[in-house]
Amino acid sequence: MPSLRNTQDLFLKGILGHRSILNNLIYPERFAVYSDGYVARLHRALKETYVACENLLSEDLFLKLAKSYIQDHPSNSYNLNRYGEVFPKFLKDSNVTKSKPWLTDLANLEWLISESFHAHVDCQLDLPLGEYLKVKWTQLYLSLNDSCVLLESEWPVHAIWKLAKQNEIHQAHEPKKIFLFIYRIGDEVIFNPISKNQHAFLHLVHMHHSLETCLEQCPDLNESEITNLFQLLSKHQLVESIELVK
C-alpha cells in the first residue's frame, strides 16, 4: 500500500502533468478536475492582479503567457494574492515586450498597487511639521506607512494603466520618464506623479536616512518641491512614525 506521503507526491505530480497517480484511483477519468482546476485558479489570481496587462495583451495571449508562467512558478504561499510576484520579470524575458516595451513596468505598477492595497497601515500620524522643523534634521527619521511605494519608469505607465483599465487600448505610446509615489488613502490606492528630486528624496527616507542626509544627497531638491512633498505626507497621514535620535 502506498504511504500517505507517496500518495500525495504522486497526486501532485499528476496535477503537474505526470499521470502515474491514475493507477491508484477509482474514476481516474475525473482527475482533470484537479489538474485543470490548478491552472484555472492560478490563472484567475494573475488576472485579478494584472487587469490592465490582460486588457492590453488580449485574453488569449494572457492565458498563454499565464500557463507558461504557472508551469515554471508554483504557488508557494497559502495566500493567492501573493501569487505572481515575478510575473513582471517573466514578461520582461518574453517576446511580448518587443512590441509593448512598457509592459514590464505596467505589470510592476499593478503588482505595487496590489501590495499597497493590502498593506498594513499601523497608525496614521498627523505630521506636526512646524514643531519638528525646529529640531535639527540630522536627528529626525521618518517612517512612511507600508502602503507607500515608489516606481520609476521610462514610460507613462500610470496613463497607460488608466486607459487599459477602461479597455481603451492604444498600442502606440511615446516614452516619457516618470516617477510615481504610490500610497493608499482609505480603501483607494493612489499614484501620484512626483519629480525626480522628490523621488530620490523619498527613496532615501525609505532607506531610513536622517532627513538631513536625505537633503544633502538631493542637492537639486528645491524648497517648493519639499514643501509640496511634506504637504502630501501630512494631508494623507502617510507618516507612520517620527524618530528623534539625540
Partner: peptide
C-alpha cells in the same frame, strides 16, 4: 500543499 506547491484546492485523502 506539499513540497512547496500550494494547489489552492481541497485535495482528497486516502
Amino acid at each position: 500543499h506539499i513540497k512547496n506547491h500550494n494547489s489552492h484546492d481541497l485535495l482528497p485523502l486516502p
